[in-house]
Design a protein around this nucleic acid. Structure first.
Length: 391
RNA sequence: GGGUAGGUUGAGCAGGUGGUGAGCUCCGCUGACUGUAGAUCAGCCGUCUUCGACUGUGGGGGUUCGAUUCCCUCCCUGCCCA
């Protein structure tokens, strides 16, 4: 509330257009928001409960984060959006003075699978905390996000798993469109951007329809939802190749929701995406997986107990600057809390540094040529073969 | 020296008062994780020719068709008393 109103809640400038030869759709942009400027392509660490798990705001800054994501559904349930508003808004509450995007809570429709009812009015959930019943509507999702005071709010949608039957996808997509209109109508806060969400699953026709429908509305940015689920990389790429070209010439940022491994980020940037978020780097860090150039380490593996080397020699993160693999391996075995902080610092530093490299290549006009080596640096997403023996 | 309670797969246990002990929890190993109900979850964790088979209840001996169980003896550990 104390934030100064700005003329454009989300002014987006593309500062480096994709080459006209069609070798890539990767582009460079600056997204100007109430709490600062975000250079795109950019990755947003996820801070569901008004905290990126295990990290302080200072850790986040040091890792290179410039914008983070938080969650409407979780903060509505606890501690309550009105309480956060009374305490001065989400930025002040969590002491993060950079931009924040809030997810609308739509994703929890699928992630909290059991006991929910979706109808035209909204979604009735059972709270994962105490079992109490709540109904989320587009209007409530917007009101909560306005109370939180995020820089970017997101329309309330109904995602479905990419592999869902066509009829299910069609139904959810149509409802998402109607809810997009209601979200837009409900949104009032002038210093807060509002992004709309495209659905459509993997169906080319539905995805194209949804992209056109959402793009035709006066949102400040376009989210591509319903991906980063159980689809294959090829299916995801094909879907992006259908949706993104329909946004050619559109002056707004494109945000692929939920994507997070370096290899996946690279392919999506190549296909014209500007913004990403994912819990993946932070979650796998807490579970002992450390990302390094060309692969990853499972720090719980026995061989690291005697390894005096840093996780990644040239990494500037808190972990790699000062501690050995052996120390981190010990902390994980002892279940010491510092393990989660150090590992998370590293994976987010790695991910955000990867985005820096991508932006540098785009700026230099060498992005398509550098894709191969960026792919090598990204390593594999999953499946055991990507594990690096040591750096 | 006497008494007493025990010795079960790395650790800690359960069980078993004559009819096939491979069960549990740790630890350990491997994997998974993508708009976070996740510092979580899954598989493995005696040996082998691994959809099965074999071995294993401190050592030795005895009774018995059959012993982890009953008897004898020895060894080891904890506690109590001298």
């Amino acid at each position: 509330m104390s934030e100064p109103a700005i003329e454009h809640p989300a002014r987006f400038e593309v500062t480096f257009l994709p080459p006209p030869d069609g070798t890539t759709r990767a582009r460079l942009g600056e997204l100007h928001l109430a709490h600062g400027t975000v250079h795109t392509p950019q990755f947003m660490p996820v801070g569901t409960n008004a905290t990126v798990k295990a990290l302080s705001p200072g850790d986040l800054r040091d890792a290179g984060a410039t914008i983070i994501l938080s969650n409407t559904y979780h903060l509505y349930l606890r501690p309550g959006h009105e309480r956060i508003a009374r305490l001065g808004g989400l930025h002040r509450f969590m002491d993060w003075d950079g931009p924040i995007l809030t997810d609308s809570g739509g994703y929890q429709v699928v992630s909290l699978g059991d006991l929910r009812v979706v109808d035209e009015h909204g979604v009735t959930f059972r709270s994962h905390l105490d079992g109490s019943t709540h109904t989320f509507t587009p209007e409530l999702a917007i009101a909560v996000q306005e109370a939180l005071g995020s820089d970017i709010a997101v329309a309330f949608d109904q995602p479905v798993y990419p592999s869902s039957p066509q009829a299910v996808v069609a139904d959810a997509t149509a409802r998402t469109h109607r809810w997009a209109e209601r979200s837009l109508a409900a949104h009032q806060r002038r210093d807060q951007a509002l992004f709309g969400i495209v659905q459509g699953g993997l169906d080319p026709v539905l995805r194209a329809e949804s992209t056109r429908f959402i793009a035709a509305m006066p949102f400040d940015g376009i989210c591509l939802g319903g991906l980063a689920g159980d689809e294959t990389p090829d299916q995801r790429n094909d879907t992006l190749d259908i949706a993104v070209p329909l946004l050619d010439g559109d002056p707004r940022p494109r945000y692929l929701m939920g994507l997070g491994s370096p290899a996946d980020l690279l392919e999506a940037v190549h296909r014209g995406i500007d913004l990403f978020d994912s819990v993946l780097p932070a979650r796998v860090a807490r579970n002992g997986q450390l990302w390094i150039p060309g692969g990853r380490l499972n720090i719980r593996n026995q061989r690291f107990l005697d390894d005096p080397a840093p996780v990644q020699a040239d990494c500037p993160c808190l972990l790699c600057r000062r501690f050995s693999r052996a120390y981190l391996a010990h902390l994980f075995r002892a279940k010491e809390l510092l393990a989660y902080r150090l590992a998370t610092c590293h994976n987010l530093t790695f991910t955000l540094d990867f985005m820096v490299r991508i932006r540098a290549a785009i700026r230099a006009g060498t992005f398509p040529a550098e894709m191969a080596q960026l792919r090598v640096r990204a390593g594999r997403v999953s499946g055991g073969e990507g594990a690096a023996k040591s750096a």
